[in-house]
Design a protein around this nucleic acid. Structure first.
Lengths: 203, 203
DNA sequence: ACTGTAATACGAGACGGTCCGTCTCGTCTA
DNA sequence: TAGACGAGACGGACCGTCTCGTATTACAGT
């Protein structure tokens, strides 16, 4: 008794169909938003049968996930490491400003928002996303902060996970909940306030 | 030509039906989660007709919103102001620990999560929520921080909106995205780190 | 290398199911 | 007597599964 009902043959997979499905998912997510995004519409737009989608992806969210991975695989791959010029504040501003720019780009932002919402609804997708993208990204951030901590630019008692939450969390919130405009100035203010703290500078 | 098709007569409203619908919504949200929460199920559970729901609420999210307001209207009403003992750090820890406790209470947390998700999908509900709950709450937080700033416990150059984001944002993120356990210790660490900043204490 | 055959992914869409939001009913109440 | 109420029928949108006939692929055996 196998748990798998069917194991589709990856060697026979139609690459053109895969690409047109992912592209259709991205386009539709950008055009109609998450609430009106349906697998039927994706299949119709892609000129694909619904079964082709269900054969290769377990859920709508998984399609979106792969679609965004395809979009991210641009010219160069692997973000590897965060910049380290020795100036922590400048480096963080560079990174967060880049994030702001990306989140203001509808081509990325709308499908990403759709994925974020789907993740809230689907624990299996959440686990997959956390393992394949979120946790690796967090480790990259943690690594940059750890170097800064060793260099004495971050206090020795600071929990680096809390530090990551403080730096990237506010941006994520503003973006997902559309709480306010996402600007480079806001990113800078977050970095400065997180680094210096709320208390006035000690004399 | 009126925009309103019908204006139901509030004076004739059945209070028992209203309460049983809101209670059913809360119970179902807690039992099956947002993904499986349907208006049909709420009506069935409440022993109400679907039309009764559609007559008084514009959307599923609006029902949840009212249900949570009903739940919050406990013994005493009006949270009014955040505590001010003069010790900003202690006061913030008190408040955030209370928030943590509330968010760990399934009776509040599950319907709240359902509402949070619905808000992401429904701009009209988002606007309503922001106006009636989120912005007033933010103003209360801002007011407490402003007092601290005047008392010299927060730097004069600090943007209080950014400060609110730094203090409450990480908690909200952990809760909504289930990124990690929501503990009093985490709340304390956020307060300490946000107040002191990431940089080592100046000598 | 060439070609025949079996396997299987593919596009298309039918199917029963759930839930949507609207619409009648007949009843009950203010 | 007007209007809210419980109940549920209705058409429509998608869901996820299934069954077609077609097209493509892997793997023979010569």
């Amino acid at each position: 008794m196998t748990t798998q009902r069917k194991a589709p043959d990856a060697a026979r997979r139609n690459e053109a169909a895969r690409r047109s499905i992912l592209t259709a998912a991205l386009d539709l997510a950008g055009e109609v938003g998450y609430a009106r995004l349906s697998i039927e519409a994706i299949a119709a737009r892609a000129g694909a049968g619904k079964q082709t989608i269900y054969r290769w992806w377990p859920s709508k969210g998984a399609v979106l996930f792969d679609a965004l991975l395809m979009l991210a695989e641009g010219p160069t791959d692997e973000p590897a490491d965060l910049p380290d010029t020795g100036d922590l504040e400048a480096d963080l501003k560079t990174v967060l400003r880049a994030t702001v720019a990306e989140l203001n780009e509808p081509r990325y932002s709308e499908p990403m928002r759709a994925l974020a919402i789907e993740i809230l609804l689907d624990p299996a997708l959440a686990a997959d996303f956390a393992e394949r993208l979120d946790e690796p990204m967090r480790e990259i951030k943690r690594r940059r902060l750890r170097k800064a901590q060793r260099a004495g630019q971050i206090g020795p008692g600071v929990d680096l996970d809390v530090a990551v939450d403080l730096l990237w969390g506010p941006l994520k919130n503003r973006w997902l909940h559309r709480e306010g405009p996402l600007t480079a100035e806001y990113a800078d203010a977050v970095v400065e306030t997180a680094l210096d703290g709320l208390r006035p500078a000690a004399e």
